[in-house]
Design a protein around this nucleic acid. Structure first.
Length: 246
DNA sequence: TTCCAGACTA
DNA sequence: TAGTCCGGAA
């Protein structure tokens, strides 16, 4: 049994999480998993991986629509994507951000899944990371959703930004903010109880989209601003991260 | 016009 | 570590 050293927990973190939960209770961040009951596990996992590659934390409607169009055209399987014309994939997923690159990555990823994993997806972080277009954020999310296996916290731009604003993470041995999401993930995992590792992502994503936004956060509407060292300190543009780089 | 999202490259 | 890829929101 591995026990995590938790003597560095930020003050009031439980109140903050509870406060964010209360603010977010009406926000649905469950995403587009409408095929859960339709596909057998292998196919379902592939859909999870493909739709996660397509996804964007800021344009959920657009990425959901793109996933739907792929499905309607029968292109949400490893075999179909592998055989599909890349131009066709582009047209179906447009206007998802980086659609040209994602179309290429989807096709390459499908080929690897087909030839190396029998149409399934890899079941380790390391192997997922070896797929084109799969970085730490997607790998951890796919492990959780696709394999029900929590290897780490899924840290996207919202989790990264909010944890730094709250002072929940810092560079090892310093009080400086973390510079990249991977650094945030490791710092957060140092103290956040494991039972919160899955819930923290959708919770902070919803909070980050609506209240603790990247640009001009709505601190006046935030129920936990009294616990936030960054509250009301970001008045213009997104100079926060740049001005804190020193 | 600036900024965002996540992975990748130079 | 900065720049690149994208369309769209602010």
């Amino acid at each position: 049994m591995l026990f995590i050293h938790v003597d560095e927990c930020p003050a009031n973190w439980e109140y903050v999480l509870e406060g964010i939960r209360k603010m977010s209770h009406s926000i649905d961040t469950s995403g587009d998993r409408e095929d859960d009951d339709i596909h057998p596990p292998k196919e379902r996992r592939f859909v999870v991986l493909a739709s996660t590659i397509l996804s964007s934390q800021t344009k959920e409607d657009i990425t959901r629509g793109a996933t739907r169009r792929l499905r309607q055209n029968g292109l949400l399987t490893a075999d179909a994507l592998n055989n599909a014309d890349e131009e066709t994939i582009r047209k179906l997923i447009y206007p998802v951000g980086f659609y040209i690159r994602k179309a290429s990555n989807l096709k390459k990823m499908a080929h690897i899944c087909l030839t190396k994993y029998g149409g399934d997806i890899p079941n380790t972080i390391e192997e997922l990371l070896s797929l084109p277009g799969v970085g730490p954020k997607i790998a951890h999310l796919v492990m959780i959703i696709g394999w029900n296996n929590v290897q780490g916290i899924c840290v996207d731009t919202h989790v990264h930004r909010i944890c730094n604003r709250l002072g929940w993470v810092s560079r090892s041995g310093t009080t400086q903010r973390t510079s990249i999401p991977e650094e945030t993930r490791k710092a957060l995992q140092q103290w956040l109880p494991r039972e919160e590792w899955v819930a923290i992502n959708p919770l902070l994503v919803g909070f980050g989209r609506t209240i603790c936004t990247a640009l001009r956060p709505r601190c006046g509407e935030c129920g936990v601003s009294k616990f936030c060292p960054s509250a009301f300190k970001e008045t213009s543009s997104s100079s926060y991260f740049r001005s804190n780089k020193s």
